[in-house]
């Protein structure tokens, strides 16, 4: 079985769906047509570019290039985490906390998978490393941005409760414990839902892609299971680290709640 090559015409037909949706948005005055078209254009351009980059990269498996691409992916994800937050931490903290936690979790999980589970040679073989990192990073980014957004909003709306707990002599960990737990839970829900529905309600994108490309279904399924576990690990630990660091940053050295460290919404 070989891949059926898609022609530009095929893609243009699919693009009609986007145009139709934009027309609907205009008709119903949803006001998202601009955003929708821009996002569609962006994704087309970005994907075409990454396709070219990957093509070059696959031809020259080189640790330096793989690291460089991974670094760019990480920085863009860090920026995205910031952009998705209503009340982010001011200064370099917002960016650093999100990026650092993604680095710690997504990179560790990816390297672990490459060296111990998939065992590619060399371990940084770009054909495996980059797509794997992309999937793990993308999901970790979602978890972390959901988690951080929830934490800072929660701290803002529950300020009186947190300060009451501090006033009673609780330390900052106890005072924000409820919000922290709830926040990490929120970050984990998407991947738990995805795992629970996988195969029955939804056929995950990666597996579908492999099957479309001619991989035997059982092999594709094994990869999908691996990737799901990796994503769950990356997201869970990444969110826990990010929320832990951000929660710490919400308090100063005298354990005062410092909402002035958040940008006003």
């Amino acid at each position: 079985m070989s891949v059926i090559v898609l022609s530009p015409l095929d893609l243009s037909l699919a693009a009609l769906l986007i145009l139709a949706l934009a027309a609907l948005s205009r008709h119903l005055r949803l006001g998202v047509e601009r955003q929708l078209l821009l996002a569609a254009a962006r994704s087309t351009l970005q994907l075409l570019l990454i396709g070219l980059v990957l093509k070059v990269l696959f031809d020259h498996a080189n640790l330096l290039w793989v690291t460089l691409i991974a670094g760019v992916m990480l920085l863009v994800a860090g920026r995205e985490v910031i952009a998705r937050q209503k009340r982010r931490l001011l200064g370099v903290w917002g960016f650093t906390i999100g990026t650092l936690s993604m680095f710690v979790s997504a990179f560790a999980v990816t390297v672990l998978a490459l060296t111990c589970m998939i065992s590619t040679t060399p371990w940084y073989a770009p054909q495996y490393a980059i797509p794997l990192l992309g999937m793990i990073l993308g999901n970790t980014m979602n978890g972390i941005s959901l988690g951080l957004d929830r934490l800072t909003q929660d701290a803002f709306s529950k300020r009186a409760v947190i300060e009451t707990r501090l006033a009673l002599g609780q330390d900052w960990r106890q005072a924000i414990a409820d919000s922290r737990r709830e926040t990490i839970r929120v970050g984990l829900i998407p991947i738990i839902n995805a795992m629970a529905a996988a195969g029955i309600v939804s056929l995950p994108g990666m597996m579908t892609g492999q099957i479309l490309a001619g991989t035997p279904p059982v092999e594709a399924v094994k990869y999908q299971i691996l990737v799901m576990f990796l994503i769950a690990g990356g997201t869970g630990f990444g969110t826990a680290v990010a929320v832990g660091l951000a929660a710490r940053r919400l308090f100063d050295e005298r354990q005062r709640l410092r909402l002035d460290r958040l940008r006003n919404a």
Partner: peptide, 14 residues
């Protein structure tokens, strides 16, 4: 800080 607040405790209005 936590020990200070345990001995100098604020009871807030609400």
């Amino acid at each position: 800080a936590a020990r200070w607040r345990a001995s100098v405790t604020l009871l807030m209005a609400e």
